[in-house]
């Protein structure tokens, strides 16, 4: 399997451990990722607050780059995935609009044709029959005994018509992957809700309360860790966990993993090799749980 890798900004910035784990797990699985070094930020739903047409133009350029590579595009961030899919929809449903944008792209040597490439989140390609078979064949250390609470990152789910998950109101793809990796999935209502990150600076109390509610539910459901497909959710749930704890006067200390880290653990990588020591909330407890089941 070969894909154009759209890293997004945060995996090259504040959550570089996500990038590390993505590259390591893909190499171990034999997935060939070609990094899109000229692709821009997806706009994160923020550039479009100012200029929606510009957002679609930047993303059309990104799609054109993937078309030129002849590869489907893979994201490792729920926010990127959601925003790229929105732009794809705007462009593909309006020929005139696409042609207006292509007119501007032309001077840079790019043209977005449409319909030639697919845009998928890493979890989507792992959840295909081929992805699952690959995982099953390559697992070196099943994550037996580890109770994992999936946190999807809402942008990959809604609007549902743009989601790559089969049933966005009740998705099962992450949980199925956990089972393949040997872990036990924990289901809880907030797994499909927002982590609050987009308003962390505008309304930190509400933002932390949203993240805190998810953490409480995961802990009460018996989870040892939360696993997310979105680096922004990771920042909200991990980097800000001390603020959440102090605001809610509770102590969770629940580790938050990026999905590729969980995959890499099962593929035999050590926590340090995939940057788990970079997290704010210590992940050491997870090693102990896994060691009990070796």
């Amino acid at each position: 399997m070969k894909f154009a890798l759209f890293t997004g900004c945060v995996a090259r910035g504040a959550t570089r451990e996500l990038m590390l784990a993505t590259i390591k797990s893909a190499e171990a699985l034999g997935i060939d990722f070609v990094e899109m070094k000229s692709a821009t930020c997806c706009g994160a739903g923020v550039v479009s607050e100012k200029n929606p047409v510009l957002t679609d133009a930047l993303n059309a350029r990104t799609f054109a780059l993937a078309e030129e590579q002849g590869l489907d595009l893979v994201t490792i961030c729920s926010t990127c995935q959601g925003n790229l899919k929105k732009s794809e929809c705007h462009l593909d449903e309006d020929v005139e609009y696409k042609s207006k944008i292509n007119h501007v792209l032309k001077d840079g040597g790019h043209q977005y044709e449409g319909g030639k490439i697919k845009i998928k989140h890493f979890s989507n390609i792992l959840a295909t029959p081929e992805g699952k078979a690959l995982l099953k064949a390559k697992i070196k250390r099943p994550l037996t005994g580890l109770k994992t609470a999936g946190f999807y990152g809402c942008y990959v789910l809604r609007p549902s018509e743009l989601s790559e998950y089969e049933d966005p109101d009740n998705p099962k793809e992450l949980e199925e992957l956990f089972e393949i990796l040997g872990a036990t999935p924990i289901y809880y209502p907030s797994r499909i809700k927002c982590c609050g990150f987009p308003i962390i600076m505008m309304n930190k109390e509400a933002s932390h309360a949203m993240a805190g509610n998810a953490l409480i539910e995961a802990v009460e459901g018996g989870a040892d860790c939360v696993v997310t497909g979105c680096p922004l959710c990771h920042l909200s749930l991990d980097s800000y966990q001390p603020e959440i704890e102090s605001m809610q006067k509770k102590h969770y200390s629940i580790p938050i993993l990026h999905l590729p880290q969980l995959v890499a653990l099962a593929l035999g990588f050590s926590p340090e090799e995939i940057g788990m020591d970079k997290h704010i909330v210590s992940t050491v407890g997870l090693d102990k749980i896994l060691a009990q089941h070796v």
């Binding site: 789910l157 308003i199 509400a206």
Partner: peptide
């Protein structure tokens, strides 16, 4: 505060 900039873009209302 409490106005338009407090929306998280989660898409729940669209859905």
């Amino acid at each position: 505060p409490g106005g338009m900039w407090d929306c998280t873009h989660c898409g729940e209302c669209v859905e």
